[in-house]
């Protein structure tokens, strides 16, 4: 997208450690509204931890995070969710005992407000709300082409489909910022292509801002507007894919010294 658009999220000097392990050290970067931002780096670089910081699951020891112009205090994950940050996970974190449909319906939780009384009767406002949200969920199911597994318990689905359902669940939240943690890991070429198309479509037609962790460099180069590179918790490069690809530090980090 255009480089001039405004900043949606700014990470400023964030450091995070677990006991003695330093997962992230003094990392700053920003995500602009409407862009696809990739976060790459070798295993253990702190990418997942970074996303966890962004949506409030980990609390950094140092640094500030500014989201939608507001520097936010320590917040809880559900608060991040209610501010429009959605997420998929590196190791699929679906609700295994529930069907595809129910999993995605859970994504609508924040959009549903009827309380116990109406829920109990399953009538009137509660039923209307249920149907309105079901309609939205069906659109997502159509978009992701998972109509046939609507009523299948997700535990029984193959891995690639699970990742797709997980994306659907995140989309159901109608997020402004979508965090994707290795959405294509373990997929074959066709599945990857499908997933790339969904991500691009999302970005293009719905204007969703996306932060993406991915190991497949080809995918990263094709999809992303800008890339930030982490290594051992430090940021070593930041810029457009072409710039980053040419950066000697990145080449070294990926290929190791002496190559």
């Amino acid at each position: 997208m255009t480089a001039q658009s405004e900043t949606l999220l700014a990470v400023d000097g964030v450091s995070l450690s677990f006991g003695g392990v330093k997962a992230i050290t003094d990392v700053s970067f920003d995500i602009r509204k409407g862009e696809i931002r990739a976060i790459i780096g070798p295993n253990g670089a702190g990418k997942t931890s970074m996303l966890n910081v962004v949506n409030g699951f980990y609390h950094p020891q140092h640094g500030r995070i500014t989201y939608k112009g507001k520097t936010r205090p320590r917040m809880r994950p559900y608060q991040a969710a209610s501010q429009g940050i959605a997420r998929t996970f590196q190791n699929v974190a679906l609700f295994r005992g529930m069907t595809t449909l129910d999993n995605i319906m859970v994504g609508r939780t924040l959009k549903m407000h009827r309380g116990l009384f109406w829920q109990m009767l399953r009538y009137g406002p509660a039923m209307r709300e249920e149907i309105e949200n079901r309609r939205v969920v069906e659109d997502i199911i159509d978009f992701l082409q998972i109509e046939s597994i609507r009523k299948t318990p997700v535990g029984k689905l193959p891995y690639g489909l699970q990742k797709r359902v997980e994306l659907g669940r995140a989309l159901a939240m109608e997020p402004e910022l979508l965090l994707l943690d290795e959405p294509m890991a373990g997929m074959n070429i066709e599945e990857k292509e499908d997933m790339c198309r969904y991500i691009l479509d999302l970005n293009k037609y719905f204007g969703t801002t996306i932060a993406l962790i991915e190991h497949d460099m080809g995918v990263v180069m094709d999809l992303s507007d800008r890339v930030v590179v982490l290594e051992y918790g430090h940021k070593i490069a930041d810029g457009t894919p072409e710039v980053v690809k040419a950066d000697p530090k990145v080449i070294e980090a990926y290929l190791g010294v002496g190559h």
């Binding site: 949506n55 699951f57 809880r76 994950p77 559900y78 991040a80 969710a81 209610s82 959605a86 997420r87 996970f89 974190a93 679906l94 609700f95 295994r96 005992g97 529930m98 859970v106 994504g107 939780t109 924040l110 669940r169 939240m173």
Partner: peptide, 11 residues
């Protein structure tokens, strides 16, 4: 099924 993911969905 997964309380952490549930939290991240706004629960």
């Amino acid at each position: 099924d997964m309380d952490i993911a549930a939290q991240l969905m706004g629960i």
